[in-house]
């Protein structure tokens, strides 16, 4: 059958920072073609196509609760694939090779993770599944 694309509305203006992205104006209605786990969604708007941050989109058909996983407080072990230095207060700074636990996989690509006793946000695209918890 035909593929029915989900329509989302831009909640704020977005300036693109690379060629494969698509700029948005608040209120733009986009069709989502592909949802990447890392928080970039491939969208189309009229004759334009490109990647858009999921955090800038809200669903037209009510809340997206069905898609978002519940937090898993037990944690799921991941390894840090790429270092990142926190910019916001609620983010974590980690080094490549660190082992952490993912507690909540958010659709915007910023996952809640735990390292030792500290929790914070970290980019999902810099994490790789698997590994042993450091003790």
């Amino acid at each position: 059958g035909p593929i029915v694309l989900q329509t989302y509305r831009a909640i704020a203006d977005y300036e693109k920072s690379s060629t494969t992205e698509m700029a948005l104006k608040a209120g733009d209605m986009v069709d989502v073609v592909e949802k990447s786990e890392n928080g970039w969604w491939f969208c189309q708007l009229k004759n334009k196509r490109g990647w858009v941050p999921a955090a800038y989109l809200e669903p037209m058909d009510g809340p997206d609760e069905s898609e978002e996983q519940e937090p898993n407080y037990a944690g799921e072990v991941y390894k840090v694939q790429k270092s990142y230095t926190a910019v916001e207060e609620d983010e974590l700074t980690l080094k490549e090779g660190d082992t952490i636990e993912v507690i909540h996989k958010l659709l915007d690509g910023w996952w809640v993770i735990r390292k030792d006793e500290t929790t914070g946000y970290y980019p999902a695209m810099y994490l790789q599944k698997g590994g042993e918890v450091d003790t």
Binding site: Y14, W51, P63, Y84, E88, D108, G109
Partner: peptide, 22 residues
Amino acid sequence: TFKQPPSNPPPRPPPDARKKQP
């Protein structure tokens, strides 16, 4: 086939336009 997503993390949600809760 689509191009690969950008290699940088997406921006955090816009501060003054949080997703509305129902």
